[in-house]
């Protein structure tokens, strides 16, 4: 891993921990971006962490770009030595795979897809070497995921599965982006899952939909009344497969203010995870089911 710095015009510095995705790169990025946020460097206006990089926006009338760059570089060594531990939460997110709404959408945009003759799930299962879509879906939801970035549009989480690289699922994005994606679609592109927080354009493959709103600018939804965005980088997610009946029930309960996601507080230690992936995930699941 070699850190790379680049100016994004006269108001941004882009810091890339690694060209490729890994939990090591993510942890280094989040600890360094936290260090920048905590450092109180005058002139920093925004710090945005991403999967394996982060971005600092600054006011060049307050701090010159070269001085800002020097300040950032000072924080790099400390970030490398930082403990790769995080106090966070695990959240259970219900997913209705093969739902009728994303199905209708993916059929509508079929000519923009690599495989016009199947569904996004058929294609993803095949290119990842699964015999059946069911087996692929199981690989998608049997282990927890890390929210490695929040962005693109309001409150949209990118998630990275907590498994070794050999077990990572990978799919390309659509050949040409769609102009429509249903709200709360569970999508997939590269090695990342996402939840579309709002309806709109998108290029990720569509696997299903969650009845759980994750962005509410009106803040009327019970669990979004404190803040309109649900996810933060560092959150852990466990997908829970559900059927149509449960989907309809949760949707109705959310509308009545009678539903909230299951959440448990957990600690995540990257070294412990790397030493024992399945054991670490099992503990995360126990914490969730004890909630």
């Amino acid at each position: 891993m070699k850190t790379r710095y680049s100016f994004g015009g006269d108001e941004h510095i882009f810091v890339e921990m690694d060209e490729e995705m890994s939990l090591d790169a993510f942890f280094k990025s989040i600890s360094m971006s936290n260090a920048v946020r905590d450092s109180g460097i005058k002139g920093v206006t925004e710090v945005c962490p991403a999967n394996a990089s982060f971005q600092v926006k600054f006011d060049p009338d307050v701090i010159k770009p070269d001085a800002m760059l020097a300040e950032l570089k000072k924080l790099e060594t400390a970030a490398e030595k930082a403990e790769k531990r995080m106090a966070t939460r695990i959240v259970e997110v219900p997913v209705f795979y093969r739902d009728p709404w994303t199905h209708e959408t993916l059929m509508r945009f079929r000519e923009r897809h690599q495989d016009p003759n199947g569904t996004d799930l058929d294609y993803a299962a095949r290119i990842n070497g699964f015999d059946t879509v069911d087996a692929f879906i199981e690989a998608h939801h049997s282990n927890p995921w890390f929210v490695s970035m929040v962005g693109f549009v309001a409150g949209l989480p990118f998630l990275y599965q907590l498994v070794e690289r050999e077990r990572q699922l990978q799919v390309p994005k659509y050949l040409r982006p769609r102009t429509d994606t249903p709200k709360q679609t569970v999508g997939y592109g590269g090695c990342f899952a996402c939840i579309y927080s709002v309806r709109g354009a998108g290029g990720y493959q569509m696997f299903g939909i969650t009845p759980m709103p994750i962005y509410d600018p009106t803040q009327k939804i019970s669990y979004l009344s404190d803040f309109m965005v649900f996810f933060n980088p560092g959150d852990i997610v466990k997908w829970k497969p559900i059927g149509r009946e449960e989907y309809d029930q949760i949707e109705a309960d959310v509308a009545k203010g009678a539903w909230a996601p299951k959440i448990a507080r957990v600690d995540f230690d990257l070294d412990a995870f790397n030493a024992d992936v399945d054991g670490t995930n099992k503990k995360l699941m126990e914490a969730l089911h004890g909630a």
Binding site: E11, N51, R165, Q168, G189, F192
Partner: peptide, 20 residues
Amino acid sequence: PFGAGSDPSNIVDGCYPYGS
């Protein structure tokens, strides 16, 4: 790079500066 996607214009999803 792992996680970027196969198109030469793909990167591991990162932040976009205003004006980029």
